[in-house]
Design a protein around this nucleic acid. Structure first.
Lengths: 205, 205, 205, 205
DNA sequence: TATGAATGAGTCTTCATTCAT
DNA sequence: CATGAATGAAGACTCATTCAT
């Protein structure tokens, strides 16, 4: 995947701006962050931002997409790599995702900004659609794993796969939310234990 | 609980403003909503808002507290009323809370604004603290019910009560999040099924 | 001079407000002071102020007139009482006025506010006229004393009475201005010494 | 004293704004003048003002400093140029300063605003300090001249130099004040005559 | 292409003033 | 008469966006 050199440069600068924006938006929120802040953080001129993005809204959405992309990768990379029992793979996926985010806890504020954007941003529908797709994708991945487990005879077949998938995926948000507010809340550990409950509920005996 | 008449009037007006603000903030977000909007929606003059609240921030926080209060009530009212097996009471609480919010789905956008405020508002620490307390309160309620179930011999005793409580409480957020983005996601039903899984994981056999 | 009782009450309240306003204006300036401040300081309701004065401007002008009246009295009371050589009476008047104001140095800020009002207030012409009259009155008093001194053979007759009067009257402002800015400036003493110079310039030999 | 080109441009614009502000503040006073007024008068956009000054207060103080600087120059330029008898130099300084200000009588309203600012502005202490320094500087200049006159045997040696200096400096304020209120008051002429009195009081015979 | 000076629309907030009680 | 709740005009200030260089 080879881009012409100047296109690559452009991509690099775009990413530079996105990463700077990511930091600043995470710290100050969408409204609190100014283009001036972001440009300064990126070490470029204010006007330059507009060479790469049409508006602040636009830039914020780009940051959003960038993070969606990243976490989507984090999820898939880790299960495709693994084989073995479905429960092991679910646990592995669970742990891998938790760890991925625990490391970037500072970015969780961005997630909350994105959620809020889905409710009140001018392009709320864009956000909603993207989140809808992402949640479906994640539920789909979990569903396949569960389905696989059922087929292998690992899991009971009388469970509502969709519902459990939603529950498992939701647990990730839930853990981070509670961890966000409460320093003493152990995200990774609680997440692991919740997954254990789900697996117990799924297991044939 | 009898307030002197003019105090009551003041309280009434304060609530009038809070409710108007609630609607407008829900629709436009904190930054998108203007005091002018809110005052107009409440049918009062712009300046009047400042007779009751020191600043926009202040008003927003009052809206926050009002909703925290309301949902906290919704949760407690419904379990204290009930007796019977712990699993029934957990299910009842689950359904009651889901229904409470499903009715006011339009308000969920506010919750996301509050979450975001906990990350980037000037008084983020206030929000964080309040959320921390609220989550602890909810987890506490669920914990007591589970504990009760364990003592009654309904639930297994080798479970991590705190973790499951966090999972159950988190499921509420999780369902609403996924429902928020996806019209076709059945919040109440999925929530019920998730609770069923948790109960299955808890049950002695 | 007997007013009907309710008229007197009205006058009393008016003065109460004027005195309160005087304090608050002195401390915060015309713009910095709010009607709410003043009413609170006077221990009355905001609305009551408007029973006695048509507007904030109006009240400020009343305060102005009140002070003009007061200082005018302070000046005249003291010379009419005195007899003796003109130079003694000039010195006495000088000292008496200085002392009068040194005691109320905190009010000098009001004087500066009045001066400023004469330049930029909506009713600047009112202020200008009143100041013009007051300065003329003061110069007139000083002039008469000097004239008297000339006629008595105390002072030289080839002096410009008007100019010296202006100088003497101006010295009062000048001393207070310099004293206002400089804690270590001895207003009364310097004023006395300046008067001595003027008298030396006036004396026949 | 060569500034880099863009620094110079910035300085020029800053001065442009200061001069516009000077006019508008002089006419309407600090509170009466709006940033919009000033910007319009300067022929720039409202926002541009804030590129050069942090706040209205800030701009006003800059105007103040600009005038202090100017008048300070007006005073010193004219005596250093002169030689000859101390009394001539005092008279010359007197006339030069009077003329300087008589030409800009419209700016005297600013002086009164500055005085008022020293009493009630948020940064009153800044103003006070600056005025204190300025008066001391002026008194210092006059003192040196008198001292010189004493040493040359022109003036009597038993006078209080500090007091007379304060009187002479004060006369400038005094003349302008009286002239401000009274169109028919001849500032320059009266000032000259007052100086004559002071000189007579100082002269050895 | 990169910049940052200039802009003005938009908003919070204050406060003199009114008026129903 | 006295009050203070209600009001909205007015103004300082911010900041996304533009555009000449």
């Amino acid at each position: 995947m080879q881009l012409p050199e100047n296109k690559q440069l452009k991509e690099n600068k775009k990413n530079l701006i996105i990463e700077a924006a990511s930091k600043v938006f995470a710290e100050k929120g969408f409204s609190g962050a100014s283009i001036a802040d972001i440009a300064a953080y990126a070490g470029i001129g204010k006007g330059t931002t507009y060479e790469y993005f049409d508006s602040k809204e636009d830039l914020f959405f780009a940051v959003f997409e960038w993070h969606v992309e990243q976490s989507s990768q984090a999820a898939t990379v880790n299960i495709t790599a693994l084989g073995g029992p479905a429960s092991d793979r679910l646990s592995a996926m669970n742990e891998s995702l938790m760890n991925y985010f625990v490391d970037k806890m500072d970015i969780f504020s961005l997630v909350m900004e994105f959620w809020a954007a889905s409710a009140s941003s001018k392009s709320r529908e864009h956000y909603k659609q993207a989140f809808k797709d992402t949640y479906r994708e994640f539920r789909g991945i979990v569903s396949s794993l569960i389905q696989d487990g059922i087929e292998r005879g690992e899991f009971r077949s009388d469970v509502d796969v969709a519902a459990i998938s939603a529950g498992i995926v939701g647990t990730w948000d839930a853990m981070f939310l509670q961890g966000w507010f409460d320093e003493s809340f152990d995200i990774a550990d609680t997440g692991k234990k919740c997954m254990a409950i789900f697996l117990k509920g799924l297991s044939i005996k």
